[in-house]
Amino acid sequence: MTEYKLVVVGAGGVGKSALTIQLIQNHFVDEYDPTIEDSYRKQVVIDGETCLLDILDTAGQEEYSAMRDQYMRTGEGFLCVFAINNTKSFEDIHHYREQIKRVKDSEDVPMVLVGNKCDLPSRTVDTKQAQDLARSYGIPFIETSAKTRQGVDDAFYTLVREIRKHKEKMSKDGKKKKKKSKTKCVIM
Rank of each mutant, 00 (worst) to 15 (best):
I24L: 15
K177S: 07
R164A: 12
K42N: 13
R102F: 04
K88D: 15
K184R: 04
Y71H: 15
S181P: 14
H166W: 08
D153A: 09
M111I: 07
D30E: 12
A66N: 14
V103Y: 08
C118W: 06
D47Q: 09
Y71W: 07
K16G: 02
P140W: 00
R41D: 00
V109R: 03
D54M: 02
M170K: 05
K175C: 10
R135C: 11
K184M: 03
F82M: 08
G151P: 15
K101L: 11
A59R: 02
V9G: 03
V8C: 05
M72K: 03
L53N: 14
Y32D: 01
L23W: 07
V81L: 11
D173K: 13
G13M: 05
D126C: 06
E168N: 04
E37I: 01
V81F: 14
L53P: 06
S39V: 15
S181L: 13
V114N: 00
G174V: 08
V186Y: 15
Q131F: 10
Q150D: 10
I100D: 08
D119E: 08
V114H: 00
K177Y: 04
K177C: 10
A18Y: 00
T2A: 11
T35K: 00
K169N: 11
V152W: 15
D69I: 03
S106K: 10
L6K: 02
D153T: 07
C51L: 13
F156G: 01
Q131W: 06
C80W: 03
H95P: 14
S171I: 02
T2L: 09
K178R: 08
F156D: 02
I36Y: 10
G12T: 09
V112P: 02
G138R: 15
I100E: 03
K101R: 11
L79A: 06
K165L: 10
K177W: 05
T124G: 10
Y32S: 01
K101F: 05
E63A: 07
T87E: 14
K5R: 11
N86P: 04
K184A: 04
S106G: 14
T124L: 07
T2Q: 11
D47W: 03
I46G: 11
L113A: 11
S106F: 08
K167I: 05
H27W: 15
L120A: 13
D30R: 09
R149Y: 14
V103E: 15
K169M: 07
Q129I: 08
Y32A: 01
R149A: 05
V7G: 03
